[in-house]
Design a protein around this nucleic acid. Structure first.
Length: 298
DNA sequence: AACCGAGCTAGAGGCCGGTC
DNA sequence: GACCGGCCTCTAGCTCGGTT
């Protein structure tokens, strides 16, 4: 149809009802239009199809052969359209068969995803769950195979423009070193603390400063960061087997037998545990369901 | 603000089938 | 055949909302 682009698709709805009712007045009532309006629609349809479509007959109208040929394909096409534009149905986790992908650091995996995993498996047994690392320069994930993506424990950066951010927990930082580390029992001054050899976690790779360094900068000091690693769990091994010390999330190492905690000579502000997700996934029912589950599990 | 299109009400007229 | 009722079509004048 060469002039299809100029066709008012509402006219097809009118035609569909006309072919069901075979009566302009009843079609108008069904469409909540006036009878002259439906009559005008019919006139436009006749002009478009270059066919009378409906002819006056005994007790109503009779469809032409062209109209009869249109009836079923039109009905099917409108059903597809109606389904396409109808409101999104609520997410049914029990029967859903989708794949979620979540970007998280190893700390996020152990403290956020692990507690959520059992509930996730129970509530959505037919769905899959993929944990992907927080690599360098990654933008907000755009959504998985019909599921979605979430970034727990990620600091908002320029790469996360267009993401929705929800903080669901505040965490504190503690000073950690190996069992028997002399510095941790000597209650060092701030200057002595700064001279110790530190290890930092840089999930994006290669960074040598963090919240602690920003705090020290404000009092005119800087610490010796001699090791930067991308994974939190590796730091546990490092500080348990060397004289390096680290400022780490309290929950990460509190059950580790090789390390001990000490009060740092300076108060380090805590951090927000947050989820980030693509704005396009914000209203997706499956995505909303997973976000809610993770938030409840933390 | 002017214009345009869609839709409304109200009214007139034509066509058709049923009834007397 | 005349009359009546139901239905369709068209026109006029109006409102309303969107566009220019």
């Amino acid at each position: 149809m060469s002039n299809f682009g100029r066709l008012d698709l509402n006219l097809l709805v009118t035609l569909d009802v006309l072919l069901m009712e075979l009566n302009v007045t009843r079609a108008a009532e069904r469409l909540s239009l006036s009878q002259p309006s439906v009559s005008a629609h019919l006139a436009k349809l006749r002009a478009f199809f270059d066919d009378p479509l409906l002819l006056p007959g005994p007790r109503g109208m009779r469809p032409t052969a062209r109209a009869e040929a249109l009836r079923e394909p039109l009905r099917q096409a409108l059903e597809v359209l109606e389904h396409t534009v109808s409101p999104i149905s609520p997410f049914e986790a029990a029967s859903a068969n989708i794949t979620w992908r979540v970007a998280a650091s190893d700390y996020g995996e152990s403290t956020v995803l692990l507690p959520a995993l059992a509930r996730l498996r129970q509530a959505a047994p037919n769905s899959r769950f993929g944990s992907v690392g927080t690599g360098t320069n990654q933008d907000c994930p755009a959504g998985g195979d019909g599921g979605g993506s979430i970034w727990p424990f990620t600091l908002r950066t320029a790469h996360h423009q267009g993401c929705v951010n929800a903080c669901y927990s505040r965490r504190s930082m503690c000073w950690w070193g190996r069992i028997g580390h002399p510095a941790l029992t000597a209650r060092p001054t701030l200057a002595q603390f700064s001279q110790l050899e530190h290890v930092v976690v840089s999930p994006n790779g290669g960074g040598f400063s963090g919240i602690t360094d920003h705090t020290l900068e404000q009092v005119g000091l800087s610490r010796r960061v001699v090791l930067s690693v991308p994974h939190f769990l590796f730091v546990k091994s490092v500080i348990g087997k060397t004289d390096l010390v680290a400022m780490l999330p309290e929950r990460l190492v509190r059950d580790s037998p090789e390390v001990q905690i000490a009060e740092p000579p300076v108060e380090i502000p805590g951090y927000e545990l947050a989820m980030l997700w693509d704005e396009r996934s914000h209203r997706d029912p499956a995505h909303q369901w997973l976000r809610e589950l993770i938030a409840q599990s933390v």
